[in-house]
Each structure stands twice: as C-alpha cells, then as structure tokens.
Design a protein around this nucleic acid. Sequence first.
RNA 1: GUCCCCUUCGUCUAGUGGCCUAGGACAUCGCCCUCUCACGGCGACAACAGGGAUUCGAAUUCCCUAGGGGACGCCA
Length: 479
Amino acid sequence: MNNLLKVNIKTMTKHSSYESTLSKNKIVTRFAPSPTGFLHIGGARTALFNWLLARHYNGKFLLRIEDTDRVRSTQEAVDAIFNGLKWLGITWDEEPVFQFSRAKHHVELAKKLVENGKAYYCYCTPEELEAMREKAKAQGISPKYNGMWRERDPKTAPADIKPVIRLKVPLDGETTLHDIVQGTVTVANSQIDDMILVRSDGTPTFMLSVVVDDHDMGVTHVIRGDDHLTNTFRQIQIYNAFGWEIPKYGHIPLIHGPDGAKLSKRHGALGVEAYRDMGFLPEAVCNCLLRLGWSHGNDEIISIEQAIEWFTTDNLGKSAARLDFQKMEKLNSYYIKNAENERLLNIIMETNKDISEEKKHRILLGMNGLKQRAKTIIELRNMATIYTEDYVTTKIDEMNKEILKDIDIALRILPEWTEEAIDKCLHTVAEKKGLSFGKIAQPLRTVLSNRKITPGIFEMLFAFGRDESLKRLSIALNF
RNA sequence: GUCCCCUUCGUCUAGUGGCCUAGGACAUCGCCCUCUCACGGCGACAACAGGGAUUCGAAUUCCCUAGGGGACGCCA
C-alpha cells in the first residue's frame, strides 16, 4: 500500500510537472470541518491523520471551513476549530479557505455542466421528492430521485417553480473506488442518484463545493470518516463530469462510544477543549487518537515526532474503535510524569491566578512528587493544594509528640536542606528511637499537611522549606 | 427496505499461509518495592463470531450465515 502511494505521487508529478514548483512532488491533504459545533474527538482524529500524512511526506496540510450552511455555521464554532487544532498542535499551511466565499464560482461551474449536457435543471418540489422516496421504499428499491427531469424539455417546466441543478449520473455501469483503507469498493451506478448540485435558491450544495474546492486547492489525499464512503461515489461522478483527476481517498472507521454505538455527547463526542478541561495534555489526546485505528507494531507511547516519522496509510485499521478513557488516562499520566515542571505549573496556574509567588515556588519544588501521582491535570491541581492551602493542625498524642520533638531538633540543625539530607536525617532519628520509618513518617505527614495521603515526606519537607516545616512542627507541638 | 463497510483477549491492537500451544498495551487480580498514596518491577487471567471451501498447512485466501456499523436530504 505504501508503494502504491509512492507510485501515485510519481504519477502525479509526471502529470503536473508543468505546474508550479510549489505543488511538485507534494502531497496535499486537508481537513474540512463544518463550523456548526465544537471540534469533536472524531474530527480531531481525522485532522490528525491528514496532518500526519502531510508532514510525513513533507507535503501540505490545508484547512477549509465548510460554512455553506449559513444558518448553522457560527463564528464561535470557527474559533473552536481553530483553537482546538492549535491546542493539539495541528498546524495548517496557508490561509484557511472559507467555502462560502467560493459559492459563486461553484455555481458557475455547475452551470457549465448544464451547458455541456452533464447536468440539468429539475423542477420537482420537495413534496414530490418525498412522495417519490416513500414510493420507492414501499417497493423495496433504493429511495432515490427517479430522474424525471433528466431528459424532459425545460420548456415544459412550471413557471412558478425555481429549479435545482442536478448531475446527470450514468444510468448503468459501475464505479470503483480504490480506497486507501477499505480497499477496492464497487457500487453500481444505478445506486447513485442524480444529486443536487445547486439548490433552488441558487446556492451550491456540499457535494459540489467539496469537489470543486478539493480540486482547486490541489488536494491529493483525502482521509475522512467512513460515513463519507457513499458520498465519495457521488463525488466521483462530479469529478468525472468535470474531467478532473480524482484524489486518493482513505475512509477511516468511525469512533464509537464505550457501548459500541455511535459516539454521542454523553460519552465522549466532546470538543477537544472539554478534554483539556478534564485535565488531559494535548500530546496524550493525540497519542490516544493516533492509536485508535492506527498502529506501529507494539508501540504505545508515540511522540508527535515519531508519529510524523512513522505515519503512513499502511497501518490504518478497518474496523471501528471505542474510546477508552482509562487508557487515555494512563497515557496522560505518562505525559504528565514526563512534562517539564514549569509547564505543569503554568497549566495549574491557569485556573489559580491569585496564588502567591511563594506558594507557586513551593509547588514547583514539590512538582516531581506531585506529577508522579497524577493521572490528570485536575488531580495534579488538587494535590498541589497541599502547598497552597492554609495550614490547619490537629491534636496529636503524647507518644507521637515525643517523636516529633526529636525530628524537630534534628531538622533544626540539619546543615543543608535537600531531599537527600532530609532522608538521611529522618532515618537516623528513626534508628535512634528504634522505630520503623513508618512510625515516624505518619505523624510527620499529618503534622505537615493534615492529610493521610500525600507525596513523600522528604519531597514535602523540601518543598515547604525549612522555615515553614519547622513552623508547622512547633505549632503542632504546642497545640 | 436498498446499497456499502466491518468482525483477534472486557477495551485498543500486533499478525499479510508455516516463526501462533496467537504477541503488546489498558483494565482486572496476585506478588515485590515502600513513609501514606501513587510510580515502578514481576506474574496471572483473558481473544482469532459461526459454518463450509482452497491448501501438506489458515487468525491470515474464498463463499455462506450471524452480529455490529454507516449511507440513502434543496445538512455537511
């Protein structure tokens, strides 16, 4: 399959060698969302795959906003898409194309098709079409437009009805798609109806606009969801009508929810910003998405750099996958563990802007211990409150007080305040008292943090610093 | 209803006719490490949807069945 791809690139180069050097040798992919909602996880994966393919082959990754549905398209959604992609680290080349701005051009081309006899005006009303579909279903045949205006003289058209433009799809024969992912798929042309290219209000349909834009943008490879597979057969008819070269298609399976059904809002069809808010790092989301339907042997942890190096369409899977939050959390905890402390601090601070510099510093000093224990940024943030919350002490019994007194003395005269030194010091205290380390660690933990579960006590003492640590000890001893 | 696609441990997957008594990861369970909680280490459990065919040999090729999914808009 990889070879196939390479051969095709060569072929394309041969054909387009007279064209600008820009497009020479280059794969051009695109991501073309409609701005009617957030960038959901499935779309993000589609974007990721197209982006990876372009970056792997040193090609171009373009962004096109399919905003031809004027009612449902919103600026908020456009922003959500841009921001979501940016957050994931998916960068696009060239200015994004807004499809609606090209509508006039799309319609002009459709009219040319009518002139060439490749398309025609249809005067059916939506009601008539509905009746047609009902009838077809009742007869057990494919519910499609019956082509009644295909050869009919437009002069017989009702004057009060504004027509649509429909494509004249071949009535017999078949259309074969050599899909990068699905392999060879063949559909009888009789299954494909004369789709509408231009609506009665004079606006182009998705089907037309996609084809024209992909062609004009020089798109060579389209990776998209499985749900577009049947659309592809229709779009191929449009390419053929124009006489244009058809791009390579790869239809990746859809992502399903934990129950195996279509992904819904309830279980994960959220915007990528929702994953950010749930405390996921973008590289963890990317890694998880990447492994959903793509693999590289037994590799699980794959950096973006490795992904770019390894990504080809060879290893794309054909079956639908479910989103596994636990696996995503595991991946996330890995990336948190390996993230820079300063970066983690900055992420935590995004929602805690009023924290003092001193406390921030404490968090930073304690970050190594904190990040070891967090599966999400939210957990990390919660754990970090150990270093920011106001100190509260509780009563301790006399036996533990004795232990803490010795600790206090030992720490007070400790020459250097490092985790190693503290470690040694506390172990010495335990030895002298003939106690297991746990016996001294637990009361100390309580006194320092008033919690049962914390990072290691050396880390905590180090992060709090000598002054604060001793202060807490003395408060507890005098309580 | 019509057309199309998919089917390996609970989940994500490796596997392209012999290397498979099917490998890895997450989850689960056990042990080790250990100052709590985690991390980490070691181990266990666990799958080729079913049936035919081709072949010396099939998870891998072909056919059928079953199950799942998708598409059938003047939405994208």
